[in-house]
């Protein structure tokens, strides 16, 4: 469904992503793991069209969207949840959630909203409260709901479990699992793989702007073979030495 072919992204003439590549199928949950500053957020922003891609290609359902404006990507069903939530404080939870429906002009927005409340009934409870009065965890849920309003095909989630109480993190995992089973593609950027490793179908490591696939390590210690991953050699530019997968797996436990 989503294919990212060797993209380069610069921010203010500083190279942030180099030859980064990744692919994702519908109904898959894929992790993008890396430390702070590794380029995770930039990678998600590039897919959303918020960071301009200098070279390389992004396709969605085989259509080239590399240069498409963000609103076109939203219309295609890609939703984005930024790490710091960024809800409009003066607007109610529901108004925040419905923003993409107004802007993109989603025809069945009532149904979409009903479906979101169905998946996340807790958001329906505080839908009329202003975003500024919600707790951090509740805001996280609203931000996820907002991403879902446009993103009924692919979700780009930036650190969804960061700064969230364990109970809510578990709830978040549950919701994501439901969505995955509904056939959504989900790309999660995380610095810490612990919370959602169980859900991941595949993982990619990102470090200093380069992305490579890595084996999944389940909590039970077993390693799942990486299916359909982009070969390491492909994902690494000539100038950046490819690192052994095992080397990276070690620091996630």
């Amino acid at each position: 469904m989503l294919e990212v072919h060797r993209i380069d992204v610069d921010i203010a003439s500083v190279s942030i992503l180099r030859n980064a590549a990744l692919d994702l199928q519908a109904g898959q949950m894929v992790g993008l793991i890396g430390r702070n500053g590794a380029g995770k957020t930039t990678f998600l922003r590039a897919i959303m069209g918020l960071a301009s891609i200098r070279s390389g290609q992004v396709t969605f359902d085989h259509a080239d969207i590399t240069q498409a404006p963000p609103q076109r990507r939203a219309l295609l069903g890609i939703g984005y949840m930024p790490e710091d939530r960024r809800l409009v404080p003066s607007m109610t939870a529901e108004d925040n959630i419905t923003v993409p429906a107004w802007s993109v002009g989603i025809p069945d927005q009532e149904d979409r909203l009903a479906w979101i409340y169905d998946v996340m009934p807790e958001t329906k409870v505080f839908r009329h409260r202003p975003a500024s009065s919600l707790s951090g965890g509740q805001q996280k849920l609203v931000a996820l709901a907002r991403a879902l309003m446009a993103g009924n095909r692919l979700l780009l989630l930036d650190e969804p479990s960061e700064g969230v109480a364990p109970a809510l993190a578990r709830r978040m995992s549950e919701i994501l699992h439901t969505l995955k089973d509904d056939g959504l593609g989900i790309l999660i950027a995380e610095s810490n793989v612990r919370h959602c490793a169980d859900l991941m179908d595949r993982m990619f490591a990102i470090e200093r702007g380069a992305v490579e696939s890595r084996p999944l390590r389940r909590k039970n210690g077993g390693t799942v073979p990486v299916a359909g991953a982009i070969p390491v050699a492909d994902a690494s530019p000539a100038g950046v030495p490819a690192r052994a997968s095992g080397e990276l797996a070690g620091d996630s436990t």
Partner: peptide, 19 residues
């Protein structure tokens, strides 16, 4: 409301599909 979002944060407006 769309203006409110853009006023608050241009990028989040973009990400939410606002032209």
């Amino acid at each position: 409301k769309i203006l409110k979002v853009v006023i608050f944060d241009r990028e989040i407006g973009l990400a939410m599909g606002i032209n």
